[in-house]
Design a protein around this nucleic acid. Structure first.
Lengths: 150, 150
DNA sequence: ACAATTTACTATGCGTGCATAATAAAATTT
DNA sequence: AAATTTTATTATGCACGCATAGTAAATTGT
């Protein structure tokens, strides 16, 4: 059996987690990305659109459609930022808060299940390796394809 | 600084790799998924549609659109399977073969870069942990949300 | 042989994230 | 103060993978 490349392992594992998260979320008529967003919104002070993406580890613009559907579902409200005419602060509705608890539990229980199954040193190694891979990519110094330095 | 959950680490890392792969592929007018498909198609014997998905670690149906666009771009040809009236064998065109080499190099160079940066034991641990996480999910025995056993 | 089931696809809707572009309101320059 | 640049946000096109549903050919059961 041929050795799997690192990208394959990463992709397959993340896809598995994603699928599980979507299955869980769909039990409540929600989705994975919605759950992540709910978790990342400050339940008291709210969170600006711009801050939300980075907080979730993604581009700020990637949430446009998700936030729109969350508003339509009554999970969030967008209130103008009194200090900045451009700004918007996203607040959770009571329903949003309720769904936030559910989403948070799904994530935490999965995290616990992993921690119960895998010993701490190995998990630390896992995180460190993942971090190093990301750094390697972002260092833009790996020579990948002929034409360019990434 | 709060500890990141395992799902977060996995997701962020895979997203980083995916982004890099797409940037590389776009230099040749291709995409990540197309590259993965090219790599997984047997250059000599070809590969059936059904076998391709699982070979790439995904559902067999997930490739419908990708394969269509690959055919339109002249990367592959679909030939009927003489042994099975339902079956189709996907073959690489000369252009497909050329692009396959490129894609393979991108993957292999990234894999090498990772291996040069991270020591082997840690990488092995990484792969083992990833595998264990997937097993944990697929064992369907983790209790995640209230209503159901996943 | 005929009917029922299974298998190999293909197509399509949905969610997700990136890139890009547009708009409007700061902030900065001049 | 006016002009330029930057920043916050939204919208949209594209790629990707899953789920679902359809079609046609093979297989199995009777």
């Amino acid at each position: 059996m041929k050795e799997k490349t690192i990208d394959y392992v990463l992709r397959a594992t993340w896809m598995g987690v994603q699928k599980m998260y979507n299955e869980e979320a769909s039990k409540k008529g929600s989705t994975m990305a919605t759950g992540f967003a709910l978790i990342s919104i400050d339940p008291e002070k709210g969170t600006s659109s711009t801050a939300l993406g980075p907080k979730m580890g993604m581009e700020a613009t990637s949430l446009s459609r998700t936030l729109k559907s969350m508003e339509e579902k009554g999970l969030i409200e967008r209130k103008p930022n009194p200090l900045d005419g451009r700004g918007v602060i996203i607040h959770l509705t009571p329903f949003g808060l309720e769904m936030r608890e559910f989403s948070k539990n799904v994530v935490l229980r999965f995290d616990e299940a992993v921690k119960e199954t895998i010993n701490m040193e190995d998990l630390e190694t896992f995180k460190t390796v993942a971090h190093t891979i990301l750094e390697l990519i972002n260092s833009k110094k790996i020579y990948i394809s002929e034409n360019n330095i990434l």
